[in-house]
Amino acid sequence: MSNILLSCGTLLLATGAVLAYGMEQYLSLPSLLIAHAMTILGPMAIKLGYVGRLYSINRLRREGAAE
């Protein structure tokens, strides 16, 4: 799950940045708003995926230490 969030977040961020800052003259206002939202939601998904990965690693360490 965390790998999916990391991948999707990276894709959202890259796509949003290209659309919002590279192709803004070709987009309508609603599309530009969505592109800017993608630049906000992308990093949020990356952070959530990273926290999920850290949680999983920590949990695996605890289970390994309990044995």
Rank of each mutant, 00 (worst) to 15 (best):
1 M>R: 06
1 M>K: 04
2 S>A: 14
2 S>D: 04
3 N>I: 04
3 N>L: 06
4 I>N: 05
4 I>C: 01
5 L>Q: 07
5 L>E: 08
6 L>R: 15
7 S>I: 14
8 C>W: 13
8 C>Q: 12
9 G>H: 01
9 G>K: 02
10 T>L: 14
10 T>R: 05
10 T>H: 03
11 L>F: 06
12 L>Y: 12
13 L>N: 09
14 A>N: 02
14 A>Q: 05
14 A>W: 04
16 G>V: 06
20 A>I: 04
20 A>G: 04
21 Y>L: 14
21 Y>M: 09
23 M>L: 13
24 E>P: 00
24 E>G: 01
25 Q>S: 15
25 Q>D: 14
25 Q>W: 03
26 Y>L: 15
28 S>G: 13
29 L>P: 00
30 P>I: 01
30 P>M: 03
31 S>V: 04
31 S>M: 13
32 L>C: 05
33 L>P: 00
34 I>W: 05
34 I>K: 04
35 A>N: 09
35 A>C: 09
36 H>Y: 11
37 A>N: 13
37 A>M: 11
37 A>V: 08
38 M>Q: 12
38 M>H: 03
39 T>N: 04
39 T>W: 02
39 T>F: 03
40 I>P: 00
41 L>P: 01
42 G>R: 01
42 G>W: 13
42 G>P: 00
43 P>S: 02
43 P>D: 09
43 P>I: 03
43 P>E: 09
45 A>N: 07
46 I>D: 03
46 I>N: 09
46 I>E: 13
46 I>F: 10
47 K>N: 08
48 L>S: 06
51 V>C: 03
52 G>R: 09
53 R>E: 10
53 R>I: 08
57 I>V: 13
57 I>P: 00
58 N>W: 03
58 N>Y: 01
58 N>P: 00
59 R>S: 06
59 R>C: 00
62 R>F: 00
63 E>C: 01
64 G>K: 09
66 A>K: 04
67 E>I: 05
67 E>D: 02
